[in-house]
């Protein structure tokens, strides 16, 4: 029997560290199997060979920070049947979205001797601020397990199973001691989207929110708890302003402490 046409996968990069697309190459046990099921049509980090669109599944890494990239994502959307963002940059603007709270001209002058050579937008924004996104995979970086789940779900024509509850639930499942209750360590677990497997508390450390806000987080209540542990406004502002600083819930909470 003739084999059905394999779906075409494309991987696209915007402003990012490359870590999320590297996660695909980090699937050491599954990579060759995935490559058997899917035609890798555009994945420059892995191969020179590229195949023209349209593409069945586009994985997009990185945020939009230049006018050129704002135009490029429109073209990629047109060429993609499904478009999935991978990671905090593509889903929330990434660490580079800290410029959204500052003056980008000042930033440019700090880093570059010739700011006139630099062309960049004043903001770093999520892919979803520019085009329709079919699914958002969280994390800085994403989890390889969840990436395989997303690709498998797409192949099977079902919705990916990535629970929207908090990191706290993952801690309970893992049987970790609560670092806030147990030793008074500040932790963003109660407001952070699950997916990492509660890795920080497992290493005696508070969650720092790299998967971004969970569904309907109660950030003011957590901040009240954190200030009882000794965090002042400046520390609270900083804890919400890292890799998902421009995600709505974290941005608003950080602004409450920005004075």
């Amino acid at each position: 029997m003739e084999r059905a046409r394999r779906p075409k996968l494309a991987v696209w990069k915007f402003a990012s560290c490359d870590g999320c697309q590297l996660s695909l190459l980090d699937c050491e046990d599954e990579l060759l199997e995935v490559a058997g099921e899917i035609e890798i049509a555009h994945f420059l980090e892995a191969t020179r060979a590229t195949i023209q669109g349209p593409y069945d599944l586009s994985l997009v890494e990185g945020s939009v920070t230049t006018a050129h990239d704002a135009a490029r994502i429109q073209e990629i959307r047109k060429q993609s049947r499904f478009l999935v963002t991978i990671g905090a940059c593509a889903t929330a603007g990434g660490i580079q979205a800290l410029r959204n709270f500052a003056d980008v001209r000042e930033y440019t002058a700090i880093v570059y001797a010739r700011p006139d050579y630099i062309q960049t937008l004043a903001t770093s924004t999520a892919i979803g601020d520019h085009v329709k996104v079919d699914f958002e995979l969280r994390g800085c970086p994403i989890s390889t397990r969840q990436l395989i789940e997303v690709i498998s779900a797409f192949l099977a024509g079902r919705k990916p199973q990535t629970p929207p509850h908090s990191v706290c639930v993952e801690c309970k499942i893992a049987g970790n001691l609560c670092v806030m209750v147990g030793h008074g360590t500040p932790c963003l677990g109660p407001v952070t989207h699950a997916g990492c497997g509660a890795v920080c508390p497992a290493y005696n450390r508070g969650c720092y929110g790299c998967y971004g806000p969970m569904e309907t987080p109660n950030t003011p209540s957590l901040s009240a708890g954190l200030s009882k542990l000794g965090m002042d406004d400046d520390a609270l502002k900083r804890i919400y302003r890292t890799f998902n600083a421009n995600a709505d819930a974290f941005r608003k909470e950080s602004e409450r402490h920005d004075r």
């Binding site: 920070t65 990434g94 410029r99 000042e106 930033y107 770093s124």
Partner: peptide, 8 residues
Amino acid sequence: PPRFFEAF
């Protein structure tokens, strides 16, 4: 695109 780490 530049990401401005040294600035932030």
